[in-house]
């Protein structure tokens, strides 16, 4: 199966989900999305950063500089409380949407 492009707006949801486990830096998020989706999702690595900064501006995640594995400084992102609420809401919405779409597809 060839990799598919992300539908508009879903990247934010995926980032929030990835960060719900633990704080991560940008590259780790990109790696995680890649692995967890079993390489089906094609996320251009560059497009991650505008999305991260947008989420930060909206106060859904916050960023902090910390030391990475080999002691280099990296920018770690973590969910805020608002971010958690947003993740829950968006996950619900997403599930409703996919169920509905699946229903339509089955019935038709």
């Amino acid at each position: 199966m060839p990799p598919i492009d992300l539908p508009q707006g879903t990247l934010d949801l995926l980032i929030l989900k990835a960060l719900s486990l633990q704080p991560m830096h940008g590259w780790a998020i990109s790696e995680r999305l890649h692995q967890v989706s079993r390489t089906t999702l094609q996320v251009p690595q560059g497009s991650l950063y505008p999305a991260l900064h947008r989420l930060e501006r909206r106060g859904l995640i916050k960023a902090e500089w910390g030391a990475s594995d080999n002691n280099r400084k990296a920018k770690y992102y973590e969910l805020t409380r608002a971010g958690r609420k947003q993740l829950a809401a968006e996950t619900d919405a997403w599930e409703q949407l996919t169920t509905a779409v699946a229903l339509v597809l089955d019935q038709a």
């Binding site: 830096h25 940008g26 590259w27 690595q45 950063y49 500089w65 280099r72 400084k73 990296a74």
Partner: peptide, 13 residues
């Protein structure tokens, strides 16, 4: 900061 962040990403990759 942004420059450093992106550079870090590229290095890791």
């Amino acid at each position: 900061e942004l420059e450093a962040e992106l550079q870090f990403h590229l290095d890791k990759e």
